[in-house]
Amino acid sequence: MQQIALPSLFAAPSADVPHQTVPLPQSQHQMHVAVFTGVKNAKEVRSLLIKGDESVPQMALINAAPIVDVFQVQMACTKALLQQDQGTMKTRSLYSEILFNLCPTTNISDAIRQFGIAESSSTVIAVMLGTEAPSVEKQLIDLVQGEIIEVNRIPDFTDLKTVNKIYKLGNAVRDHSETLALVIGAMALKGHLN
């Protein structure tokens, strides 16, 4: 799994030291990512995941089609950790909160359906959060049958049609960074637009 740092957030300064900012504890967390492509057993993995089978480690299994860039996943994770700290999570676990945060709307079942691994998923992003490298790497590789690729190749597997539909971006042609900017903005303003 590739280790990726998460954006560090800052705690609000206290009233007596107005200009000091303190990094929050979640900035010590690392995001551990593995991207699988050519996945053959998505249907099976999904049903094991739903059953809560022991062969599935605690993690988020993300459908790569609506993912534009790894930064999108980083932001969803950072927000999930922040919400865990603040006690404002909307779903039952940290990993379902990541899927929820990727979604621009506040419907939990829509979020899981759009961003969770689907029966037809051929590219899947496995994400774990923690301060140390996870010990379940082998378990993960045994579970998901596919080829592991570099995280920076995520854009090669994006389905822009799906992205435009989920984030309501219309059909205008945009470059990668502009699409990413609009996606990140839509995630940040989840529930606050209109």
Binding site: P7, G185, A186
Partner: peptide, 17 residues
């Protein structure tokens, strides 16, 4: 965010705490 969507360049909003 609304401006950026409408095609006006603004800083991307990363996160609202």
């Amino acid at each position: 965010h609304r401006m950026r969507r409408a095609g006006v360049d603004t800083p991307t909003v990363y996160l609202v705490d």
